[in-house]
């Protein structure tokens, strides 16, 4: 398989870099170092016996997606849209952001991810999910690593079947 470009996007401080670091280096830090510009890294995943190299672009968070330079999304196969389960302002633009991304990448795989699962009770998480206009694909914790591997596996499967 040739490499696929995957974008990590969403508001600032939601845990994009943390998910990226957890997935690639299996590391987590409590420190918040905001991303400037873009960081690119690579990980080859194995999806049901197929090697799939992912080039993951961890980009600086923006309050709304139309603030992200368009060129970052060019040629991407997928966008992982991350929000912070504990901060409503990070998912208040969910609908408009997703409409925008779908427009930008027709046919692209878009994943909606609620992060910082470890900070919430299962009930509170259900409440947040119910309040949203769109289904959430997966809830993760970059801190504990819960569902991080699973997120990329799901993504890989979707990418191969496209």
């Amino acid at each position: 398989m040739t490499s696929k470009k995957v974008i990590l996007s969403g508001s600032f401080g939601v845990g994009k870099t943390s998910l990226f670091n957890k997935f690639i280096h299996n590391k987590f830090s409590d420190k918040y170092l905001t991303t400037i510009g873009v960081k690119v890294n690579k990980k080859v995943i194995n999806v049901d016996g197929t090697e799939l190299p992912l080039l993951i672009w961890d980009i600086a968070g923006e309050v709304s997606q139309n603030k992200v330079p368009n060129s970052y999304f060019l040629g991407a196969s997928s966008v992982i849209y991350v929000f912070d389960l504990t901060r409503p302002q990070t998912y208040k633009n969910l609908q408009t952001d997703l409409d925008y991304l779908k427009d930008l990448l027709p046919g692209g795989v878009i994943k909606v991810v609620g992060n910082k699962k470890d900070l919430m009770t299962p009930e509170a998480i259900e409440e947040v999910k119910a309040s949203l206009p769109l289904p959430v694909d997966i809830v993760t914790s970059a801190k504990t690593g819960e569902n991080v591997e699973e997120l990329f596996q799901q993504l890989g499967r979707d990418l191969i079947s496209v």
């Binding site: 510009g37 690119v40 672009w57 368009n70």
Partner: peptide
Amino acid sequence: LDQDVIAGMLTAIKAFVED
């Protein structure tokens, strides 16, 4: 180092500057 990563970063820098 991983040349795929260099290529990606280069493109990101390029996009950033051009933008």
